[in-house]
Design a protein around this nucleic acid. Structure first.
Length: 284
DNA sequence: AAAACACCCTGCCTGC
DNA sequence: TGCAGGCAGGGTGTTT
């Protein structure tokens, strides 16, 4: 499940493998991607074929590839969804099932987008401003200012868990890292966001630390996440609560609980993470 | 207006 | 053993 650290890891590996390379041609499976996707093979081919790869960037959970083609500059957007992978392989390497887009490079390598569940997305535009997926995104978690986070919290009656998952409020977190951030700060997932204004600094600090550590570990591989070179992450061994229902809390040894919020699992410690505004910030 | 929810998809796991 | 059903959840569109 690629979240910000996994996407950042993929972007870094793609950057070393792709920048300066030229796309010769593309191949498509013909399958649709996620509902509401603007994925259009004709447009993607027109923007990519013959273009040079200038840069590879990340915005929230999106991979952005800057292209320079005969018709000018373009931006290629790839979202990995739940099960998406971007791999750079040798031409002629066996085609994995559920491969949907292949960019053939002049070097003889291929960039491949593989996505069994097709929750991912591929799109092109002339600039970031024309990429629909990027328009509603909030600030980057690694760059957000405490005052801005506090102001945003103050205006939301949503549960804190939902607030942190809302890409319009803060862009790039997913279920795994939100659970970890809440545990680290000792805040209960069901607390109203606006009751946590005083904890904005602690939330920001925990977020930055947890994301940095996850990036250092090259992401969390729970099932099949790998980077562009096929390397698994190692951050799954650092998780304090996610996926640990019934196991001992690493801080107080009580059993980690699971509840469902907005249809998604929340893992937390009911002893360390109190509903009441105790004002206590826990440290590992 | 903001929050909640249904939907898309496949693979894995559980239970009968 | 085999198969049905539940579950995983990011983002979008719809409903409350």
């Amino acid at each position: 499940m690629p979240e910000l650290p996994e996407v950042e890891t993929v972007v870094r590996s793609l950057r070393t493998l792709l920048v300066g390379k030229k796309v010769t041609d593309l191949w498509f499976s013909g399958k649709r991607l996620r509902t509401g996707s603007s994925f259009d093979p004709v447009l993607v081919r027109a923007a990519c074929a013959g273009a040079a790869i200038v840069a590879v960037r990340r915005r929230a959970k999106y991979v952005l590839v800057d292209l320079k083609g005969m018709q000018g500059a373009a931006v290629l957007l790839v979202h990995l969804g739940m099960s998406g992978r971007l791999r750079v392989v040798e031409k002629g390497a066996e085609l994995e099932p559920h491969t949907h887009v292949v960019w053939r490079l002049r070097t003889g390598h291929e960039l491949r987008f593989v996505d069994p569940r097709r929750f991912g997305d591929v799109a092109v535009a002339a600039s970031d401003q024309e990429l629909r997926g990027l328009l509603q995104l909030g600030p980057e978690p690694l760059e957000i200012e405490t005052a801005d986070l506090a102001a945003s919290l103050r205006g939301s009656r949503a549960p804190l868990k939902s607030f942190l998952l809302d890409q319009a409020k803060i862009a790039g977190l997913g279920n795994i890292y939100v659970c970890e951030i809440l545990w680290r700060t000792g805040l209960h997932p069901a607390r109203e966001a606006r009751s946590c204004v005083a904890h904005a600094a602690a939330l920001r600090e925990a977020t930055v630390d947890i994301l940095h550590r996850a990036i250092e570990n090259r992401g969390t591989t729970l099932r099949d996440y790998v980077d562009a070179e096929g390397t698994r992450g190692a951050n799954q061994f650092q998780l304090a609560v996610y996926g640990r229902e019934g196991e001992a809390c690493r801080r107080c040894a009580k059993l980690v609980k699971r509840m469902v919020q907005a249809g998604r699992s929340t893992f937390f410690c009911s002893s360390c993470q109190r509903r009441t505004a105790a004002g206590r910030v826990n440290r590992v």
